[in-house]
């Protein structure tokens, strides 16, 4: 029983991280029709900047204040997004998709190398943050308090993003642009501005994901590529361009992976791709995708 509950919490924890990575990828595709291959690298930027910022001031500040520094990681990724969209992506919208893929893939490689140049080849850690939350006892099992914090952050991000897109004027413009960019533009929507804002929000979510996961797993070279692959699995299941899809996809992947580890340890590697394959076979556009 205690194991079951712990594993459910583990699934939610993993789903939270997956959602934070995947929602931005999906949002950017939904609005701009761009598959951002560098999305995982922005997640890594969030982790590295947060680890660096925490390391810089860890000895001066109380741990609870360090939590605020996680937002610096998210902000750094958002800033990178705000700079990258107008300079590198905007000139390519009129071109075929291959150009955008090549550009964002090149960006992935450059960001990976930049992170190595700036922060070196060794992992950065800042586990004071995860130690700050005491482990709690759930039906006799020990569960890390920080993981609960991550679940709360993931949940809050989902609710916040939903409210933002469905309950604000900006959200209406965003959805209008997503549904028909030309018509929105003809009606006076500043599409350029919507694009840069959507891209920045996408990067912000990725950076937030990287920052909150950093106290548990460190900032490691290559984490962005790994995250990108997982995000793709999530959006393939949920449907590229759909926020609900990203949320449901993340929950499914979180739960199935945990089940796989628990009962079919040997096929852990394959299990995520198997679900993705099944979904692609039954619903090629994903569960919530628009064909």
């Amino acid at each position: 029983m205690d194991t079951l509950l712990t594993q459910i919490l583990n699934s939610l924890f993993y789903a939270s991280i997956l959602f934070l990575i995947a929602c931005g990828l999906s949002l950017v595709y939904g609005v701009m029709r761009i598959v951002n291959m560098a999305h995982g690298s922005l997640y890594a930027v969030g982790a590295y900047v947060a680890a660096w910022a925490v390391g810089l001031v860890a000895s001066y500040l109380h741990v609870s204040l360090l939590l605020v520094l996680l937002l610096i990681g998210a902000a750094a990724a958002a800033l990178a997004g705000a700079l990258l969209e107008p300079t590198l992506l905007r000139p390519l919208y009129q071109r075929p998709e291959e150009y955008q893929l090549l550009m964002t893939f090149g960006l992935l490689l450059i960001l990976e190398d930049l992170m190595r140049m700036v922060w070196g080849p060794y992992p950065l850690t800042a586990s004071a943050l995860s130690e700050f939350f005491p482990s709690i006892s759930v039906l006799g099992a020990t569960y890390p308090g920080y993981n609960i914090f991550v679940i709360v952050v993931g949940g809050a991000a989902a609710v916040g993003l939903w409210a933002f897109i469905y309950r604000t004027r900006f959200g209406i413009l965003l959805r209008a642009t997503s549904q028909n960019m030309r018509m929105a533009s003809a009606l006076g929507v500043d599409v350029k501005r919507i694009y840069v804002q959507a891209f920045t929000i996408g990067c912000l979510m990725a950076g937030l994901g990287g920052a909150v996961v950093m106290p548990l797993s460190g900032a490691v070279l290559g984490m962005g590529v790994d995250a990108l692959i997982l995000a793709f699995v999530v959006v393939v299941i949920g449907g590229l361009g759909s926020l609900e899809g990203a949320l449901v996809g993340a929950l499914i992947v979180g739960a199935v992976r945990t089940l796989g580890i628990m009962y079919f340890a040997e096929i852990e590697l394959a299990v995520l791709y198997l679900i993705a394959a099944v979904v692609l076979f039954l619903r090629p556009a994903g569960l919530f995708g628009r064909a």
Binding site: D2, T3, T6, Q7, N10, S11, F13, Y14, I17, A141, N147, V213, L216, S217, G218, V220, G222, M223, D226, R257, T258, I261, M262, A265, E266, E268, L269
Partner: peptide, 20 residues
């Protein structure tokens, strides 16, 4: 037994399984 993919940095489910 748990067989995470090389490059995994998320081990919560493996740890819970091991403890259980």
């Amino acid at each position: 037994e748990a067989w995470p993919k090389l490059g995994t940095t998320e081990f919560t489910a493996h740890i819970t399984k091991t403890i259980s």
